[in-house]
Simulated scan of single mutants.
Amino acid sequence: MELEICGITKQYKDKCAVDQVSLTLTPGVWGLLGANGAGKTTLMRMIAGIQRPTSGCVRYDGIEIGTLKEAYRDIFGYLPQEFGFYPSFSIQDYLEYIAALKGLTKAESLKRIQILLERVSLSNVRNKKISKLSGGMKRRVGIAQALLNEPEVLVLDEPTSGLDPGERVKFRNLLSEFAHDRIVLISTHIVSDIEYIATCNAIMKEGKIIATGKTKELVQMVSGKVWSANIDSRELEEYEHRIPMVNVYNEENGDVKVRYLAETEVIPGSKSEEPRMEDLYLWLFPESGKED
């Protein structure tokens, strides 16, 4: 089982959204990490066959997905950032409708819907209209519809948007179990979504894949660049203007403990720290920290 992304490019007039991306995905959870606007959604839409690339192609087990057509859709699951639904549909109605589109029999769909609603904690509101659901509950409905046909390839675009921390943990556990013999690609800018469950990660910036590897390998890109120090709270503003801050903790004695990124020690008495995925992300995408 192999999904090959072969030199894929998407050009919009004067902007190149995806630029010569090549990846070979094998079973397991793959993280596609990048800031908003990096080209992740465009890449996923091409993998899903919704958009045609300007050049390059996507192959599943050596065959282009355009050639596979329905056979590819039968083994494919997709959760876009926004999914459409009829306002009058209940959760149950919507999932039965999607199951029919995916070719499941009535008996298969009812059984599968029951299992998935329990897994995403929606079985007690199955008859509630989707239009009346909270953002997090709508996202869980989207996750359920993507899993309906037990796809061999599952692509999820910002899947945990709107989910609370407990729901995110359940979702990560569900994906880890599901990805045992399937290809799962998660696009996100939320590092914790993939840090502990991804078999491999790809980092995307300005339409290009700039690095791939396991989490332990990738974080070495910022080895020796992560520091912690205690400072007087009155010094915090000055240092925030000079160096990227990862975390700021208020101590009981009035001091502030900071975790920061720099090529060399900036704050006297700083201690070198083991790098994490969040450190790497903020090193590569410093503008994200400013937005947050």
Rank of each mutant, 00 (worst) to 15 (best):
L3Y: 00
I5M: 00
G7P: 03
K10H: 14
Y12T: 05
K13F: 04
K13E: 09
K13A: 14
D14T: 13
K15F: 15
A17F: 04
L23N: 01
K40V: 07
R45D: 01
R45L: 15
I50M: 03
R52G: 15
R52L: 15
P53D: 05
R59G: 05
Y60M: 10
Y60S: 07
D61M: 05
D74N: 14
I75N: 08
F76Q: 04
Y78S: 11
F83Q: 10
G84N: 13
S88M: 09
E96L: 14
A100N: 06
G103M: 04
L104I: 07
K106D: 08
E108P: 05
K111V: 08
K111M: 12
S121L: 08
S121Y: 05
N127V: 05
K128D: 09
S131M: 14
L133V: 05
A144W: 01
A144I: 07
P151H: 03
P151N: 04
V155H: 02
P159C: 13
L163G: 10
D164C: 09
D164A: 11
P165V: 06
G166I: 08
R168I: 04
F171D: 00
R172W: 00
R172V: 02
N173T: 12
F178N: 01
V184W: 02
L185P: 07
S187Y: 00
T188M: 10
H189W: 02
S192I: 02
A198V: 10
I203P: 12
G207C: 10
V226D: 08
R234S: 14
Y239H: 06
V246C: 13
V246D: 01
Y249D: 12
Y249Q: 12
Y249N: 11
N250Y: 12
E252L: 13
D255W: 10
R259W: 14
V266A: 15
P268T: 03
P268S: 12
E278M: 07
G289I: 01
K290T: 06
